[in-house]
Structure formats: C-alpha cells, structure tokens
Simulated scan of single mutants.
Amino acid sequence: MSIEVHNPMTLPVNDNVPGNDYAFCVELAGQPWFTAKGAMIAYYGNIRFEPLGQTSMVAIVAARFSSPLYANDWVLAQGQGKLILGDRGFNINSFDLDDGNLTIRAANLLAFEPGLQLKQSIVPGFLTLLGTGKFLASSNGPVMFAEPPLRIDPQALVGWADCPSPSHHFDADWMQSFLGAARGMLLGANTGEERQFDFTGAGTVLVQSSEKVVNDGHLLKHIESETVSLGQNSLRALHQSIGARLSQQQ
C-alpha cells in the first residue's frame, strides 16, 4: 500500500488535504483566522493560538466576533505556517461568502476569515456569518445544497444562506393526538418524520447526508443562558420536566 507523507511544500493552500475529506489545510501568512477550540490537529511554522479574551488583536475580535455566549469556544490563530484542522472524523468543506448572510449550526462551524463577522443567531444553537470571506464547516457526510420551499429533518440541517429563518412544521396526524404532541414537545420524543424545519422564500439550505447531528454542547449553553430570566416557579417546573426525562431514559 502506498502512503503519501506530507510536508509544508506538499500540503495545499486553503484546501482539503489531498485524498482526505476529513482534514483541511489553512495557510497563515500574516492574516489571522478565527478557529474553534479543538479543531487544530497539527501545524507547521510559527503559529500562535490566542483566546479571544487574551488576544493581542483586540480590535479584530471586537469588530468581528459578536457572540459572548460562544467566546470561550474560539481562539485567534495567527502567525506564519500551515494549519491542519479536523473535527472528529467528520467531512470538512470550505465555503465562500460574497457580501453574504449565512446561518450555521454552531457545532458545525470550524473556522472563518476575519473578513466575515460572526453574530449570535436568534435560533438556539446557531451562529450567523456576514460579509465576504471563507469559512470551514464540518458535516456528517457530504453537504447537499437545496432551494426553498423545503422541509427538512432538523438533525440533517447544517445551515441556510440568504433566506428567512425556518419555522417548525409538525405532522398533522401526530398533532391530532394531544398526548403524543405533549410527549414529543416536552420530552423530545419526536423524529424528522413528525417535526421538520420549514423553509420558504429565496436562498440556499445546506443539508448533510445523515440524520446524526454532531455532538452539540452549544445548544445547552443557549438553554442555560435563557434560564436567567426564569422565576422560582418556572425553574422548579423545568427541574421536574428534566427529572422526568432522565427517569424515562434510565
């Protein structure tokens, strides 16, 4: 079996490692990149990884990163060299925005150039990129691009560009049963066949070729942040609901 051994000269510039859809090589040549913590798997050269709260490039962070909820999950990679990124064996693709507007699942976003601005989406667990530049995203299998109108399994959704945020669509037969609907919405006992995201208008939807979503701790952070506005009675009710679900899963 022939094994290809890479070095800085054979690695690509801002592209997947040849023959490897699960690793991506970014060339740093003075321009920094925002990268998700844990995405770096190797690098050549003189590259520094600075937490956003302790970076020497405060102006770039202030202008380009507007999501305090996720700030601890990102670093600023800067210097000279080639940086190889990966995400637990998931497919990695690069995408180019040209004065665009794209919302992506936070767990899928790996890196982006500072020409793009990151904001926190109003949709839980998602982030929005604005502007012009390149970004990297992981997916469980290759990504398909689809035009609205479209309904999609929530687990298969990677993101959407230049179209309105989706609404929830619940299957009519499933909704006829109040107990079934209550069980699904409160305890999560529903599937893509019962609940979908409904996209309308113009734009593009990014769909991964699997219903298995990447492990998403970002949604938990969003939920925790929302509990700050809850009173004691609401917190007790939430505690009881979570306890019931944990008992059901044991």
Rank of each mutant, 00 (worst) to 15 (best):
S225A: 15
F24K: 02
E194S: 11
G38L: 06
S66W: 04
L76A: 03
A161S: 15
E224L: 15
N16L: 07
A106M: 08
N20Q: 13
L97D: 08
F199Y: 12
L116T: 06
S229V: 13
G79R: 07
A39N: 10
I60T: 15
E211W: 01
F65L: 07
N16M: 03
Q120R: 12
Q232L: 11
V75E: 11
V26N: 07
L52A: 04
G81N: 07
T35K: 02
A111E: 03
D162L: 10
L127C: 06
L52D: 01
W174L: 14
A156L: 00
L130C: 09
A106F: 04
N190Q: 12
D87K: 13
V214M: 08
S94H: 13
S121D: 05
F178S: 11
G86W: 03
V75R: 07
G141L: 04
P8F: 08
P142W: 08
D21P: 14
F197E: 00
L97E: 10
I92E: 01
T204E: 07
Q208F: 12
R64P: 06
A23W: 01
E193G: 05
Q240I: 14
F49H: 12
G53M: 06
P149H: 03
F95H: 13
R245P: 09
E50N: 04
S121Q: 04
C163P: 08
A23R: 07
N108Y: 03
I122L: 08
G180S: 15
C25H: 06
G86P: 05
L109F: 04
N7Y: 13
Q249G: 01
F112W: 15
R64F: 05
F90D: 01
N140E: 08
R245C: 08
I41W: 07
G141T: 04
E211A: 10
M9R: 12
F135L: 14
D198C: 06
N101G: 01
G86H: 02
A181V: 08
S165M: 04
A156D: 00
S225Q: 05
Q54M: 12
I47N: 01
T128V: 11
Q120G: 13
W174G: 11
N215K: 11
S139P: 05
P124R: 07
K221R: 15
G38A: 10
L246F: 07
E211M: 05
T200W: 10
T227Q: 11
V205M: 02
V75G: 00
P51S: 03
Y43E: 06
P166E: 02
F126W: 15
P114R: 02
W74S: 02
G89H: 05
Y70D: 13
Q240V: 12
M57E: 13
R245G: 02
G201N: 01
F34Q: 00
E113K: 03
A62L: 12
V61S: 03
S177V: 07
A107E: 02
E50Y: 04
